[in-house]
Simulated assay, not measured.
Amino acid sequence: MSSGELADELGISRRSISRYADEGLISVALTTPGGRYKFDLNTVREELRKMAQERRDQR
């Protein structure tokens, strides 16, 4: 799934998706020869859930 498709599915910006991937916060399933990222929706959803839970736990 492309970053645009992932962003639409999750309701966040494509820029946020790219930033999260660049920072290593979400896993990239594949990087195309052109340098574009491809993602697995279920993996990213789980990673975002864990990030949100960690933020809640820090409060």
Rank of each mutant, 00 (worst) to 15 (best):
Q53N: 07
I17Y: 07
R45K: 14
A29L: 02
E5C: 08
R14N: 07
G11R: 15
S16E: 12
E5A: 13
L48V: 03
L25I: 07
P33Y: 00
S18G: 04
E23P: 00
R36L: 05
K50R: 03
L10V: 04
T43V: 09
M51S: 06
M1D: 00
E5P: 11
L25F: 10
S2K: 15
Y20E: 15
R49E: 06
A52Q: 08
S16T: 15
S18L: 09
Y20D: 03
D8W: 11
L30A: 06
L48A: 03
G11Q: 15
T31D: 00
L10F: 06
D57H: 11
L10N: 07
I26F: 01
D8K: 10
E23F: 04
I17G: 02
A52K: 14
S3T: 02
R45M: 02
G34F: 03
Q53C: 11
N42E: 15
E46R: 10
R19S: 14
A29P: 02
R49S: 06
E5W: 09
E23H: 01
L6P: 14
V44F: 00
M51W: 12
S13Y: 07
S3Y: 05
D8N: 03
Q58W: 08
L41Y: 13
L30W: 06
D57E: 04
S2V: 11
S18D: 07
D22S: 09
G34R: 11
I17M: 05
R45S: 03
M1A: 12
L41M: 05
T43N: 04
E9Y: 11
R45I: 04
A29E: 11
T31H: 03
E5Y: 09
L6Y: 08
G34L: 04
E23C: 07
K50Y: 03
Q58A: 04
E9H: 15
E9Q: 14
T43G: 07
E46C: 14
E46P: 11
S27R: 07
T31F: 01
M1V: 08
E23M: 14
R55A: 15
D8L: 13
R56Q: 05
G24T: 05
P33F: 02
T43I: 08
R56V: 10
E54T: 05
P33I: 01
Y37W: 05
R56E: 13
T43R: 10
A29M: 10
A29N: 14
S16F: 12
E47S: 00
D57T: 13
Q53R: 02
G11C: 14
L30M: 07
L6A: 05
G35I: 01
T43Q: 13
G34S: 07
I26M: 04
M1H: 14
V28R: 04
S3R: 12
G4E: 13
S2F: 10
D8S: 14
E5R: 10
G11H: 14
S16N: 05
G34W: 01
S16Y: 10
V28Q: 00
V44E: 00
P33H: 05
R15W: 09
G34T: 05
G24A: 12
L25Q: 02
S18T: 04
F39W: 01
